[in-house]
Design a protein around this nucleic acid. Structure first.
Lengths: 224, 224
DNA sequence: CAGAGATATATCGTATACGATATATGCACT
DNA sequence: AGTGCATATATCGTATACGATATATCTCTG
């Protein structure tokens, strides 16, 4: 019984650094536009530049970091245009992928989805925003059933991670939290019951409403 | 006048190796499942392992290579399931993105698209299959107008590259080439004229028909 | 005093070297 | 003879060291 055949190289320093720097970027600890000097990071983590470079290149590929030859890396700046693209892409991909996930899911996949849904629910109830972002991503992914839609999950994982940085901006208003909980519960119910049409509609609405709130927040930030 | 502000690090050995290995993978020179030993590649290219590793990690992120900690890299095997996902994702993203590209395109973008279309047409006419694959990718991308849909272009570029490896399998039959030329010409005409509905329909049909042929070829290969 | 050129400095990218991990080989043991 | 363990080997991952590039500082000139 060796279910996970392809351990995605997590036993290396590079992989750990990738996770760490990614977390700092999505949490805002490394601000958009901030420089990421290799020597400084290496010194801070007590390693050489090589795993640091590998981590930064990986994040570059994920779209969280911009790299310029011989001029270093920086946290990719936020932009309304990118936000628009992220949510347009999610809207194009995610609802259908959820429907397919509902079709493909086996018992353990269903348990994982329900479980993640519960954890997210609790985190939102207690206002644990830091974890809520990660759990939200995990929940949306679980509905896809990553094991059975490998490539789709990779693409969506990236989009969800990119989205997280924007959503963080406007998650404070508590009305939002309550609505998010309602929408997630409805999504999960439709997913569980295999109600494809309803799931499609709910997923589209959920993603759209998230983006609309975000766009409002961006506009407000733009006009001060 | 420094129009291209963000030179995407092409002046490094890693970047050149990435392009080279990618080309060998999509061309089939490195077969699916083949091992990619770092020392051997480094020796062959006359460089150290470090830029080789960076290139392999990049291709890992692109989905062309699988990496396993302490066990090395290999060319990602082909699978009918992956092919299905690639084309489902393209179908979800590409038609809309082309419509948006047609809306956003400025004069130079239009020239580039027309130009790439011509080159692709010629390559297909002369049966230059090796270049046709790359030009096909470039053409589809040009209709997106990558400069104005950065993230969408990144995602699609990846999907098109992944697709290329599968399409190569069944590109020989010359009936396919003629039809591809017709479909491309029609796409370009609708794009040029900003006929959104027609462009949507043509793009969907084009992607679907490509996948159907591919699926047939895969099935034939499966049954010998 | 402003601007162009040359030099200095900091950071980056890669070669070399070495310790760590996984697989393969050989041996003892049942 | 087959199974389990210890050793040997090959490859990987990372530290160290150094040459290369881009930017900043300084100097010289108009």
């Amino acid at each position: 019984m060796h279910s996970e055949a392809a351990a995605p190289l997590v036993r290396t320093m590079s992989a750990q650094l990738t996770a760490l720097v990614r977390a700092r970027i999505v949490s805002g600890a490394y601000a958009p536009g901030a420089a990421l000097p290799q020597d400084a990071l290496a010194a801070e983590f007590g390693v050489s530049k090589i795993p640091v470079r590998e981590a930064l290149l990986q994040l570059c590929a994920e779209g969280l970091v911009d790299g310029f030859a011989h001029r270093g890396f920086q946290v990719r700046p936020l932009s309304a245009a990118e936000a628009q693209e992220i949510f347009t892409l999610r809207l194009a991909i995610e609802p259908q992928a959820m429907v397919r996930g509902a079709q493909l899911a086996e018992a353990p996949d269903r348990e994982r989805a329900e479980d993640t849904g519960r954890q997210l629910h609790e985190a939102l109830a207690e206002g644990e925003l830091a974890q809520a972002g990660d759990l939200n991503r995990a929940f949306h992914l679980a509905l896809i059933v990553p094991a059975r839609q490998v490539l789709t999950a990779e693409v969506l994982q990236r989009l969800l991670t990119l989205a997280q940085r924007y959503v963080r901006l406007h998650l404070q208003p508590s009305g939002r939290l309550r609505r998010a909980r309602r929408e997630h519960a409805a999504l999960l119910a439709a997913w569980r019951g295999g109600q494809a049409q309803r799931l499609l509609r709910l997923a589209r609405t959920h993603i759209e409403s998230t983006y609309e709130d975000l766009a409002r927040a961006l506009a407000a930030a733009g006009t001060h």
